[in-house]
Simulated assay, not measured.
Amino acid sequence: MGLGSTAKKIQALSDRAEAMYRQVQELQQRITNLEEEVDDTHDTVSRMDHQLTEQRALLLAIADEHGLDGEEILAQAAIDEADELAAEDEGEADAADATTDESDEASEASVE
């Protein structure tokens, strides 16, 4: 009777080991696919960065042809964008503060 029970335990252990091995293989495949996707994304971003640099140079040259200071325009655009982001961050912070204040008031009310 002992050998039958041991054989069943060994078979169950073997089945679990095979299942885990399959999972490890699947994970390895997923990691390999992710690495390939990351490499592709890196190549795409590098290509886009190069194209953006070329476009910036072209726009600066066009602005210069028309007597405009392209660098000043870009600097002002960056300032405007930073101001907008700061305003959004303040809005989110105010909303978070309001939520925290409401939670604190609710907690105080439940304690009383």
Rank of each mutant, 00 (worst) to 15 (best):
A7L: 02
K8C: 00
K8I: 01
K9V: 00
A12C: 01
L13Q: 11
L13P: 03
L13I: 06
S14W: 01
S14R: 03
S14Q: 08
D15K: 01
R16M: 09
A17D: 15
E18I: 02
E18H: 05
A19E: 15
A19V: 06
M20T: 12
Y21C: 07
R22F: 05
Q23E: 15
V24I: 14
Q25I: 09
Q25V: 07
E26Y: 04
E26V: 07
L27Q: 12
R30V: 06
R30K: 14
E35T: 13
E35L: 01
E36R: 11
E36P: 02
E36G: 09
E37W: 05
V38C: 02
D39T: 12
D39L: 11
D40C: 06
D40R: 11
T41A: 15
T41Q: 11
V45C: 04
V45L: 13
V45T: 00
S46E: 13
S46C: 10
S46K: 12
R47I: 09
H50R: 14
L52W: 04
T53N: 14
T53I: 09
T53S: 14
T53V: 06
R56C: 03
A57R: 14
A57N: 12
L58W: 08
L58P: 06
L59N: 15
L60G: 02
L60Q: 05
L60S: 03
L60R: 03
A61W: 02
A61C: 11
I62D: 10
I62T: 09
I62P: 02
A63T: 03
D64R: 10
E65F: 02
H66A: 12
L68I: 07
L68S: 04
D69N: 13
G70V: 00
E72P: 00
I73E: 00
I73D: 00
I73H: 05
A75V: 08
A75F: 05
A77K: 11
A77E: 12
A78H: 01
A78T: 08
I79K: 10
D80S: 10
D80M: 06
D80I: 05
A82M: 04
D83E: 11
E84R: 08
L85M: 10
A86F: 08
E88Q: 10
D89C: 06
G91N: 02
G91V: 04
E92R: 01
D94R: 02
A95S: 08
A96Q: 13
A96S: 05
D97S: 04
D97A: 08
A98I: 02
A98D: 15
T99C: 05
T99G: 03
T100F: 08
D101P: 02
D101V: 03
D101W: 01
D101G: 00
E102D: 15
S103D: 14
E105T: 09
S107M: 13
S107F: 09
E108I: 01
E108L: 06
A109R: 09
A109F: 01
S110P: 03
S110A: 11
